[in-house]
Design a protein around this nucleic acid. Structure first.
Length: 301
RNA sequence: GGGAAGAUUCCCGAGCGGCUAAAGGGAGCAGACUGUAAAUCUGCCGUCUUCGACUUCGGUGGUUCGAAUCCACCUCUUCCCA
């Protein structure tokens, strides 16, 4: 059993989560694909050390910035944590904006051992040489059903589908995507807010990150983290790299970070619709929301 | 004061007599998503009673069968010489 809190970036998840975790006397499992990286602090709006010392946060600062990490790595680690906490009689509180991490934790995922990075490289070369359509035709040969579902332009997904077939002999379309097996009972809350207000919040937050020294952080990171590392693709980071390399002005960079963050928030909101969430109004005070949450939890548990 | 360029749909920006509601990009909105997910990708995007109709390309008036595209004047903008 787990409790969850989702919401788009900059809506105030962390603040509410902190209070709630204290109230409920539980630990937090972060579900954030960027906060997993060590040393990526300002741009990921990571909780402060002080905050993390007050409430235990799992899944933050667990990956070296030069390494890669994926949703499967995530769910495997979180499985252990949930079991551990549940065994102690605790219901952990999963908080974050990475909807896919919730998905891959809450449900049984198909295709064990279906990763082959060399094959990906190979397919990527094939893509460069022959184009997206030919790559898609390749998938057509192995798994027509998936090929029909995946747009040829979505080459990452086309490659993954081929990879699944080549490594496991299974077709992606054989997975249980439409019939997912639930792993954990859960109650997921979702913070919502008026879109315009959200976008304003985002802009304010980005300005704050800049004031807090985002560029310095990235400058130091660039000394040892390759620019094409997964960690460097995060919003706020890739744009800063571009700026520090002298490719654009500071103003352009800030505008672009704000823009990309807004677009991201929009995608998050779309994703949350597939999660079965209970909506919370971010305009209400933390205490009000905590009361609402408490009453709902009591009803279920 | 003289000269040059230009005003295009929310923004940038093509078009330079018919094939144009007007390329492309951005924004916005909606959506997809099972191992890079802060990623990747898709659709819509003048209005409407949407297989058709209507109103648009600074303004007004012309030339044409027909104009965002040509002409005249007006308004504004940028730039250059004073």
């Amino acid at each position: 059993m787990i409790l969850g809190l989702v919401g788009p970036t900059a809506i105030g998840k962390s603040a509410l989560a902190l209070q709630l975790a204290k109230e409920l006397n539980t630990n937090i499992i972060s579900a954030d694909s960027m906060q997993i990286f060590k040393e990526f602090n300002i741009g990921t709006a990571k909780p402060s050390n002080e905050e993390m010392s007050r409430i235990k946060h799992y899944m933050i600062n667990i990956v070296d910035p030069c390494d890669s990490f994926n949703s499967n790595n995530y769910s495997q680690q979180v499985d252990k944590i949930i079991t551990l906490e549940n065994d102690k009689g605790q219901i952990p509180f999963m908080v974050g904006g990475t909807g896919f991490y919730f998905d891959s934790t809450l449900y049984e995922m198909d295709f064990e051992n279906s990763v082959d990075y060399d094959l990906r490289k190979e397919l990527n070369n094939y893509l460069i040489l022959n184009g997206a359509l030919e790559l898609h035709n390749l998938l057509m040969k192995y798994d027509i059903e998936s090929a029909m579902k995946i747009h040829p332009n979505n080459t990452k997904k086309v490659i993954r589908a081929i990879e699944i077939y080549k490594t496991t002999g299974l077709k992606k379309s054989d997975g249980n995507l439409n019939n997912k097996k639930l792993k954990y009972e859960n109650i997921i809350f979702e913070l919502t807010i008026n879109r315009e207000v959200l976008y304003k919040n985002i802009e304010k937050r980005v300005d704050k990150m800049i004031d807090n020294g985002l560029f310095d952080e990235v400058f130091n990171l660039m000394k040892y983290v390759p620019i094409d590392a997964q960690s460097m693709q995060g919003i706020g980071y890739k744009e800063s790299v571009n700026y520090l390399k002298g490719n654009c002005t500071k103003e352009q960079t800030i505008t672009s970070i704000k823009q990309n963050t807004r677009n991201y928030a929009k995608r998050q909101i779309t994703y949350f619709k597939r999660l079965n969430t209970i909506k919370l109004d971010a305009d209400l005070s933390a205490n009000e929301n905590i009361n609402i949450i408490n009453s709902i939890i009591k009803r279920y548990i």
